[in-house]
Design a protein around this nucleic acid. Sequence first.
RNA 1: GCGCUCGUAGCUCAAUGGAUAGAGCAUCGGCCUUCUAAGCCGAGGGUUCCGAGUUCGAGUCUCGGCGGGCGUACCA
Length: 541
Amino acid sequence: MNLTLIVKGLIVKSLGDLDFPEVPIVIEVPPDPNMGDRSCTVALSLAKQLKQPPRQIAEQIKNVLPIDSDPITKVEIAGPGYLNFFFSENALIHLLQAILRLNSDFGNSDRGAGQRRLFEYVSANPTGPMNVVSARAAALGDSMVKLQRKIGFSVDSEFYINDAGKQIMLLGASVKARAGEVKGNSREIPEGGYHGSYVKQIAAEAIDEFGDALFTLPDEDLGCWSADRIVENQRSTLEDYGIQFDNWFKESELRRNNEHQTALKLLEEREHTYSKDGALFFRSTSFGDNEDRVLITSDERPTYFLPDIAYHVNKSKRGYDKVIDLLGPDHHGHGLRMQAAMKAVGLPDDFLEVVIVQQVNLMRSGKPVKMSKRTGEIITLKELIEEVGPDAAKQIFLSRRWSSHLDFDIETAKDRSEKSPVYYLQYAHARICSIFRKAGDVQEADSECLLKLTAPEEQKLLRNLSVFPDTVESAALQLAPNRINSYLNDLATSFTRFYHECRVLSDDDDLTRARLAICHAVKIVLGEGLRLLGMSAPEAM
RNA sequence: GCGCUCGUAGCUCAAUGGAUAGAGCAUCGGCCUUCUAAGCCGAGGGUUCCGAGUUCGAGUCUCGGCGGGCGUACCA
């Protein structure tokens, strides 16, 4: 049940009848309910092509609109040429019944049917704990995946593990150095190595596992072993955060299968490479980059860039129509290069979409938290969710666009008093559950008693519920979970006003049943919205 | 220098190119005998960084400034 689509259908039909040219049709919700339930600006956008005043065009459209009494009772022309549509009482009651029938399927659509997509996010290096940008990316990616699935895309999520190359050797050497400290045969942590305290812990585990044989292991082998442990940690931390991936993809596998060589051949065949100073370059400047990039160094090592190209080629070979990468702000140059590479190997221009998740400034009571990556003094994702909780953290991350640089104040996030916006949505949900516990067994409302829902607060709620499918679709297509958050806030606000103005459980049986029906619908939508954000919907608080 | 990105209320942030730019926090004033006060009602608060342009219409798009962040490795 999507009232917006019904309005759109009527417009499309009218434009066809009038032989008007095809233009994109935008249906929106007017700012004031007195202006109607939906509006359309198509007359404004047709004005130029038809060389007629927009109101005159609107008049013609209005005249051919097949309006009877349901679900549209009235169409008005307003302002410069808006077409405003008014829903009938019945339309909103059918909507309410549809929500109760569909339950959490309300808002589903087939918009993305037949398309396969892959979201890659977090992909933190297996050389240390995850940071707050990973926490933000994890919340975002998880919600985007859920949203796109809801509108019919076939979506997988993936975590890419960079478990090969120089950094793994450095990790191995760092662990060895820390183990050396314990065993009294002191070594230095190498330049560019890892200093964090977690390295000491892995060193201790490595001693348990290998004993003195540890010191004769090649750095790379020890590095791989350590990386495996770190990845396991990342996986369980993400699990605690409520984030699961469909797939974990290892760079080492890619290298074992020589896929980076295959990717290189692909670029060479298409003549997008050249040699200079003993190194092999990718001519990325032909695809909009401002400098050509090295694929193979003069000492014949592949740079990180080459296997990453191979990884993305691999994604296309797995049959994805489109892949979306969520990258940190320090990788935006990398994203552009990857897009250049995708074009170079002949994939469509829009095959790879890059979302740059902007930085998170951690604050504590208004003061920035100082962190040093070099010494390993950072606040980790694990510490963050232990301190503020997964739901509160996600709510902050998902209430902003990914493009905004955000200040995350730990003390504000932890605050569970009335100052905290975090529990507002959950509180509304829990309140409804509480009403149902109190109500006991109540007969289901029929259409007749639903007609009693005439209070302004009830009408407002019904209108809010009616735009959920639209909100889901735009949030999904624009990769904007924050729209769901805003929507849920509106819905919860409307519900709370209703709760204060309209007593649900009363002596009037019909009215009680009708109000329980509306409560049930709000509960369904709140619950589904929270699920889409990866947040819990508690029955009691 | 070049590239990317952000700039909206005191603060943190919203707003498919559409009608009077909205929330939360903070400030001020009311509301618990009543289904959860983690709540509700009300008030104040704006040159959407500046300047041009495109458009019937710009916070949103284009160009030029200013300011913050980040890139610009034969590192990942």
